[in-house]
Structure formats: structure tokens, C-alpha cells
Write a protein that binds this DNA or RNA. Structure first.
Lengths: 199, 199, 199, 199
DNA sequence: GATGAATGAGACTTCATTCAT
DNA sequence: TATGAATGAAGTCTCATTCAT
């Protein structure tokens, strides 16, 4: 399928160059189709981008949803959210980057709004999980959407750092650190729960 | 000073449109100078951008540094870091956005590296503060740079959400939430420290 | 018949957008056939256009010819020519427009010449009617083809004005005006034939 | 002046090819400037076209206005209008063609409306002259704007025919014919004013 | 110091046409 | 007969940069 080939090439090119530096020529070249073919399958650059983002978010959402069963403890749920987001941010860092960082640039207003809806949808999905835990009385009383947004930024930024400068850190450390800061924060708790014995 | 006028205009234009959609024409227009004048004072678009980012990070760094005296408790130091970052992200959200989100896109490789150095410098500056606290034994044992990077992402993303959808949240709540998640996390601590009585 | 459906759709699309802005996609869409089908029935866009123009001119020519019997007075013949041309220009203004105005633009040279032949044929047809009258001594001595060409332009342009700005004029006035200018001109005749009593 | 060179080249290219077939590349080539220079001086193709049309209509309007003094007889005024329009249509037939025929095609709606305003302005200008005569009681009672529109179409179409097929006609004949049809029409007048002795 | 006209590479997009099915 | 995916030439327009003044 050409359409698939195009989307795959587009993910690569967008990821490597960001939205603006990615050129339709490049995408066509990479997909080994004529430039016109892009426009046969997608109305334009912005919509191609949107389609990719939609698909990507759908995949990760589905993947997480499938693993989040209600019989899991909140701790385990948080852990899994972190793990899958790490998968997303580390394995598809270029893709994640354009979704979570480049969404507010100079994309056609119309498409930009849809994209922000998608991102918001993702945040809300995570917020729902938190919501569940809050109701169970495990979590402090916060605006869960705000918390979800913050968590995504935390994960994103940490992964960026990890990928760029984190040669001395291993992935498990990263995962552990993220779990820790999200659940119990950076401070040593009064009761003196020691580092490394959180579980 | 024309140079100052240009930089001021450039901040506005870059903030409003992002790096790529910002045009030298726009900047010249806004600065009320001829386009050629831009090139008299700056070698090119990328360098103009770099200069702005450098200046901006310097200003915020200095401002925080001036308020962080070693005789302050770590709690107060964290609180001040959060407060000043909120000032940055909320008051100059456009500027903060391009610094923390758009830095990895399609800017000339050469300049991009320098910009990442700047960003890293900022993260290290925050990391140093954390480092201090860790040595005092108030903080858990983590890679402070990683933590700093994560915190910046957390702040950035939370502010984005706050600015776009957070009409029901007030700034104090936001500040409180950030302090909480950074210091003690989202979970209720074993000892049962109740929400709202963190200080 | 698909061919008929295509021609009908093509008339609409060409009329609404002019030759150049009309796209084969639009025509196929409107005709509810696949784009390839257009090329099964017609060699290309220019030839499709030509076919439509030929058909249209044939229809109007036939219609007029059927009503012009030699036993009619010249006055009546002129009147009928005007009336049928008004029908054409007013009812099918889009079609008339492309035939009489857009014929000399950027259509493939080859087809363009054929189209001009068609238009010339139509002018000659009207010229013949005038010719007949001139021989009967009712008309002044002019080049009848030139007169016919002029009349078509007069009708065309008047109708354009009528359709765009002529809300205060009714069709009978328009018809009357055209009859008048063609037959006795704008000036009051020496004998003083008063307006409105021409018949 | 480059701007002048561009406008001059644009007149040629538009005249030869019509609006749609005229390409900005062609115009730049003909004007011997870089493509970007076109866009430095004009916002786009449509506006370049508009500017040309405005200028052209202004020139012809001014030229006629300068020669139309109120002490002239209506006959002489009509004669001069015809003469100057012939100058326009014959000497600059390509230009006249795009102004009077191609104005309704696929030009950007916005610019198209302005262009129609211009054309209407020209028609109104001629209508005013007619208006004057009607008030003097020399002319029959007609809607002068309608008559002006018709006259322009008559002139335009006659000139087209003359240029394409009129090798056997000379310009004086053409001028005479037009004067005749406009003033006294095609019919022999009751009083029997013989052809060729209209003055 | 400052200007602004000029440049040209490169971007996005359109669309008539082809062709394997 | 009919389809529709694919093509690629050609078009309009943007914009960072240069340079003579």
C-alpha cells in the first residue's frame, strides 16, 4: 500500500526534521512515490501530519488501555503508564517529540486546533486513570488533568535529557526515578522511607 | 538603540509565531527598521534567535540566583525556583515555549548545538540547587540533572495546560500543586500528611 | 448514458468556473463517474470543451433557424434573433460566456482554431439573415458579417450588464432597447419617431 | 525602474496568453528580473493583473476625457468615443481583450470584484456622456448605462472580428459602421437618408 | 550605521493525463 | 466500458540573504 508507505516515510521525515523542515519532496522521495501521490492520499502537509499524530496517539492509547485492568493496584497502573510512555518517548523519540513539543508552532490554525484536541484527549486519558486512584483515596486531592499534563511533560523532558546526556543512566533507573517523583516526590518523607525501597 | 529595538521585536515575533514562521520581514517591520539593518547587527536569523535565547536565560538565571541564598531552607529554595519559573512560563509563555520546546527542530545545526548548551546550562543551574539539598540529606538520592530536566518539563507542561485549559485553576493552586508533586509526590504518604498542610 | 452525464456535468462546471478553473476532477465528481471515464469518452479536456461548444451552438442555431421563415418581415426576424439570443445569454449565461468571451484565451492552439471556426459559423449564420434583408432594401449597406459580430457583442455585453447590475430593468425593456439600437440607433430620427412607438 | 519593466512585461504576457496561461515565470523572464522581484513589487499575480487593468483604464479614460469638451456636438462626442475605443481595441487588442472579456473567469474573488468595479466605472464614464446628450434631447430615452455597456460590447466584438477576419475592411469603414449603428441603426430610416451621407 | 530593492532556491500545491486492471 | 491510483510537469508564492548606495 502506497498510503502506508507514505505514512511511514512521513513519520521518519517529520521526526528527523520537525514539521517545518520536513518537506513533501523528502517524504515522497523516502516513500518512493511521486510527489503528486502524496496529494492523492492526503489533502496537504498539515493533514498528513495530523493523520500521523492521530494514528500514533491511538496506538499508544490502545496499548496502555489494554494493559490497565481495574484489578491492578494504582501503583501498578502508574508504573505501567510510565513504562509505556517511556517506550513511546524512547523508541519513537522523534515522533513523540513532534507530538508533544511541536504542536504549537506554525501549523495551519485549523489543523492545529484538531491536533491540540488530540493531545488533550491523551492527557485526559491519563487523567482518568489518576481520577480512579484519587477516588480510592490513595492520591492527594489535585486536578487530575493538570497532573496528567504535568506528568507527560515530566516524562517527555526526562526522556529528552536521558537520550541526549544520559549515557550514565540506565533505563531502569530512569523508570524508577520517574515512579518515585510522581508518587512520593523528591523529598525524603518524614517517616524516613529510604531510597530504593519504595515497593 | 536599534539593536535593542530589534531584539525586543524579535522576541515578540518569535514568541508569537515560533522560529520558522517568524520572518525577518516581520521582525524588521515590528522593530521599525529596514530589513538590511537586521543583518547589520546580526549575522542571520539563527544567530538573532540564539542571542535572544541567551539573553533570556541569563536574565531568569540571574534573577533566581539573586534570590537563592544559602541560608534559605531547601523548601524555600524549591518554592522560589518554582515561582520564578512560573513567572517565566506564564508571563513570557511564548518565549519560554520556543526555548524549551522548539529548540530541537530545524534550526541550523551549528546554532542548535549552542542553544542546547544554553538549555543544558539552565538545567544544570537548577540541578546545582538540588545537589545542595541532596548533600544536606533532605532529598532522595537521584541524578540531580535528570531531576532538573524533569522538573523543567513538568513546569513547562503544567503551565501550558494551565494557560490553555486552566480557567478554573488559580495561580496559587498551580504553584501549590507543583510544589507538592515535586517534593512529596501524588501519593498520600503513609504518615497521612493531609492535603493543604504541607508547609 | 455516461457520455451524456459527462457532457451535462461539464457544461455546469465550465460555466461556473470558466475553462481554466474547471478541473477534470470536478467534472467527474459532478457526473458521478470515475476520472478515467472522462478519458474513455473524450480525448482530453480541450476536446470535451469543444464538443460542448459545438453542441451548444448547434442547438441555438437550430432553434433560431426553425423559427425564421422567409415569409416573416425582417423586423420580425431581427426580433426573433434578439429574443433567442437573449434566451441563450440570460438562461445559459455561464455557457454563453465561455463561448463568446473565453474562446480566445489559453486553450490548445489546435482546438482553439476549431472553436473560432464554430463561433465564426454562428456569426455567419446571423449574417446571412441580415444579408437577406439587405437585399430586400430594408437595410443600409454594411458588411453583414461585421454587423453580425457587432450585434453578438452588443447582446452579450448588454446581457452581462443586465444580469449583474440591471435589477431595475425588466427583460422586455432590454429586448426593446436592443431592437431599437440595432434597427434605428440611439439618435432621435429626423422625422421624430418617438420612443416607445417603434413597432 | 523595475516596477515599470514588470508592468510592461506583464501587459505583454497577459495579452498574449490570457490571465491563466500567463505565468509569473514568463513575466519575470520577459521583464528580465528574478521571480522574487515580482513579489517584491506586487503581492501576487491577481494584484499585478489588477494594477495593470486599473492603469490601462485610467489612461484611456483620461485620454477620452481630455478630448471631450462640452462645446462639442453630441455627434462629435460619440465619434470621438468610438475613435478612442478603436484605438484601444485595435492598438492594444490583447490588453482590451483581457479587460473586457476575461474579467469573469477564475480570478480570486476579491480581486475580481475590484476589477468589475473598474470596468463598471469605465462603462459609467461613457454612460455620463450619453446622459448629457439625452438631456439635450438628441437621444432616445434609454438606460444610459445599459447603452454604454452595449456599446462597449459592440466595439469590442466588432474589433475582434475586424482584427481576425476583416482584411477587406479598412479602419475608416469600421469607424463609420460603428457610428452608424450606434446613432441611426441598421435600418434605412423612413425619410430615406442614404448610406454614406450621415453627416 | 542603515537602507531597501533585488535575488533565487526551494516550498507547497494543482491537475491533465496515463495505465494496469 | 469503466475505474481510480499514480504521475510529474508546471505553477504560485515565501523568505533568508546580499549588496550598492
Amino acid at each position: 500500500m502506497n498510503k502506508t508507505k507514505i505514512m511511514s516515510a512521513a513519520i521518519d521525515v517529520f521526526s528527523e526534521n520537525g514539521y517545518h523542515r520536513a518537506s513533501m519532496d523528502d517524504i515522497a522521495l523516502r516513500a518512493k512515490v511521486a510527489k503528486g501521490t502524496l496529494y492523492y492520499h492526503f489533502p496537504g502537509k498539515a493533514q498528513l501530519f495530523k493523520t500521523i499524530v492521530m494514528d500514533g496517539l491511538q496506538v499508544i492509547t490502545d496499548r496502555i488501555r489494554n494493559e490497565l485492568r481495574t484489578d491492578l493496584s494504582l501503583e501498578e497502573q502508574i508504573r505501567r503508564i510510565i513504562r509505556h510512555n517511556l517506550d513511546l518517548f524512547l523508541d519513537s523519540s522523534g515522533f513523540a517529540h513532534i507530538v508533544f513539543n511541536e504542536l504549537s508552532n506554525g501549523i495551519d490554525q485549523e489543523v492545529l486546533e484538531e491536533l491540540n484536541e488530540l493531545k488533550l484527549g491523551y492527557i485526559r486519558f491519563i487523567a482518568e486513570v489518576l481520577e480512579g486512584s484519587r477516588e480510592e483515596g490513595v492520591m492527594i486531592n489535585v486536578n487530575c488533568s493538570l497532573a496528567a499534563a504535568g506528568i507527560v511533560g515530566l516524562l517527555n523532558s526526562s526522556c529528552d535529557y536521558f537520550l541526549t546526556y544520559g549515557s550514565s543512566i540506565n533505563r531502569d533507573d530512569l523508570e524508577h526515578f520517574l515512579y518515585q517523583i510522581i508518587t512520593t516526590g523528591l523529598f525524603l518523607t518524614p517517616g524516613g522511607k529510604p531510597d530504593g525501597m519504595l515497593n
